[in-house]
Amino acid sequence: MSETLFDPKMLEALVCPMTQGTLDYDAGNQELVSRAGKLAFPIRNGIPVMLVDEARKLD
Protein backbone atom coordinates (compact mmCIF):
# COMPACT_ATOMS: atom_id res chain seq x y z
CA MET A 1 0.00 0.00 0.00
CA SER A 2 1.40 3.37 -1.03
CA GLU A 3 1.08 6.18 1.53
CA THR A 4 0.77 9.80 0.43
CA LEU A 5 3.20 11.92 2.44
CA PHE A 6 2.70 15.45 3.66
CA ASP A 7 4.87 18.08 1.98
CA PRO A 8 6.58 20.11 4.75
CA LYS A 9 6.71 23.10 2.38
CA MET A 10 2.99 23.48 3.08
CA LEU A 11 3.91 24.68 6.59
CA GLU A 12 4.90 28.02 5.06
CA ALA A 13 1.25 28.65 4.16
CA LEU A 14 -0.54 27.01 7.10
CA VAL A 15 -1.29 28.44 10.54
CA CYS A 16 -3.27 27.17 13.52
CA PRO A 17 -6.95 28.03 12.91
CA MET A 18 -7.40 28.83 16.61
CA THR A 19 -4.30 30.92 17.43
CA GLN A 20 -3.08 31.90 13.92
CA GLY A 21 0.32 30.72 15.18
CA THR A 22 2.94 28.53 13.56
CA LEU A 23 2.71 24.76 13.29
CA ASP A 24 5.33 22.04 13.71
CA TYR A 25 5.29 18.89 11.57
CA ASP A 26 5.33 15.65 13.60
CA ALA A 27 6.25 13.06 10.97
CA GLY A 28 6.02 10.13 13.39
CA ASN A 29 2.39 10.83 14.30
CA GLN A 30 1.49 12.44 10.95
CA GLU A 31 0.20 15.56 12.69
CA LEU A 32 0.67 19.32 12.60
CA VAL A 33 1.22 20.57 16.13
CA SER A 34 0.16 23.96 17.46
CA ARG A 35 2.15 24.45 20.64
CA ALA A 36 0.36 27.73 21.44
CA GLY A 37 -3.07 26.16 20.96
CA LYS A 38 -2.03 22.83 22.52
CA LEU A 39 -3.60 20.99 19.59
CA ALA A 40 -2.39 18.38 17.10
CA PHE A 41 -4.13 18.37 13.71
CA PRO A 42 -4.19 15.02 11.87
CA ILE A 43 -2.76 14.53 8.40
CA ARG A 44 -4.87 12.09 6.38
CA ASN A 45 -3.71 10.86 2.97
CA GLY A 46 -1.15 13.65 2.89
CA ILE A 47 -3.76 16.35 3.58
CA PRO A 48 -3.81 18.25 6.90
CA VAL A 49 -7.25 18.39 8.52
CA MET A 50 -7.25 21.91 9.95
CA LEU A 51 -10.49 21.66 11.94
CA VAL A 52 -10.37 22.36 15.69
CA ASP A 53 -13.07 19.69 16.21
CA GLU A 54 -10.79 17.08 14.57
CA ALA A 55 -7.65 18.08 16.50
CA ARG A 56 -6.20 16.09 19.38
CA LYS A 57 -5.75 18.07 22.60
CA LEU A 58 -2.20 18.14 23.99
CA ASP A 59 -1.28 18.32 27.66
Rank of each mutant, 00 (worst) to 15 (best):
A40G: 06
L58A: 05
V15Q: 09
R35G: 10
F6Y: 03
P42I: 08
V52L: 09
T19P: 15
A36G: 02
I47A: 13
P8C: 05
A36L: 15
M10T: 03
N29R: 13
Q30A: 10
M18H: 09
Y25R: 06
G46W: 10
D59W: 01
T19C: 15
Q20K: 11
E31A: 13
K38P: 12
P8A: 04
G46H: 14
D59C: 00
G46A: 13
P48K: 10
L32T: 02
Q20I: 00
P42F: 12
F6W: 07
A27T: 00
D26I: 07
D59M: 00
R35K: 12
L39Q: 06
I43M: 13
A40M: 08
I47G: 06
S34E: 12
D24M: 06
N45L: 03
M50K: 01
P17F: 05
L32R: 05
D7F: 02
L11S: 02
K9H: 14
E3V: 00
Q20S: 10
K9N: 13
E12P: 03
G28M: 05
G37A: 12
A13D: 08
E31H: 07
T22K: 12
G46K: 13
Q20Y: 05
P8L: 08
L58Y: 04
V33N: 11
G21F: 07
G37S: 11
D24Y: 08
M18D: 15
T4Q: 09
C16I: 10
E54G: 08
K9F: 07
M10W: 14
P8G: 07
A40N: 06
P8I: 01
G21P: 14
D7H: 06
A36E: 14
Q20F: 03
Q30S: 10
M1A: 15
P8Y: 04
T19R: 12
R44I: 01
L51D: 09
K38Y: 11
F41E: 09
Y25S: 05
K38E: 11
R35Q: 14
L11A: 07
V33M: 08
D59K: 02
L11H: 08
T19S: 15
D7S: 13
L11T: 01
T19A: 15
E3A: 06
V52F: 03
K38V: 04
M18S: 15
D24K: 04
C16F: 14
M18Y: 06
D26L: 06
E3P: 01
V33A: 15
M50N: 03
G37C: 05
A55S: 07
T22H: 10
F6R: 02
A40L: 08
N29Q: 14
D26F: 06
E3Q: 07
N29C: 10
M10K: 13
L23S: 02
D53K: 13
